[in-house]
Amino acid sequence: MKRCSIRATKWRISEALVVALVIVLGAVTAVLAKDDGAAPAKKAPTGAQLYAMNCGRCHMERYAKERTDAQWQTIITHMRVHANLPGADARKIIEYLQASN
């Protein structure tokens, strides 16, 4: 029983750490957002910016020349389905990659 109690206490500490982490991340988020004056939220990002923020947050850069225009449309549609990207943002990314191809 005592051992279970110790484990339960450890888990409560772990859960408290996770909650603390979320709070810290939230605080950092708020600070970063404040520093930037929330300006980006009002500007429509370009295809290049959407590519950097949506693709770059998961993996290293893929180069536009790697695929044909039609293949990019297929691959970004695949990414849209998996990452739940909004359709308009996905189209801008496709246009950016095709224009850079």
Binding site: P40, A41, K43, P45, Q49, L50, N54, N84, L85, P86
Partner: peptide, 16 residues
Amino acid sequence: AHGGISLGGGSYINYG
């Protein structure tokens, strides 16, 4: 059923 709802400026809500 899933997708992303744009909030503008690159922000979006995703759901499923």
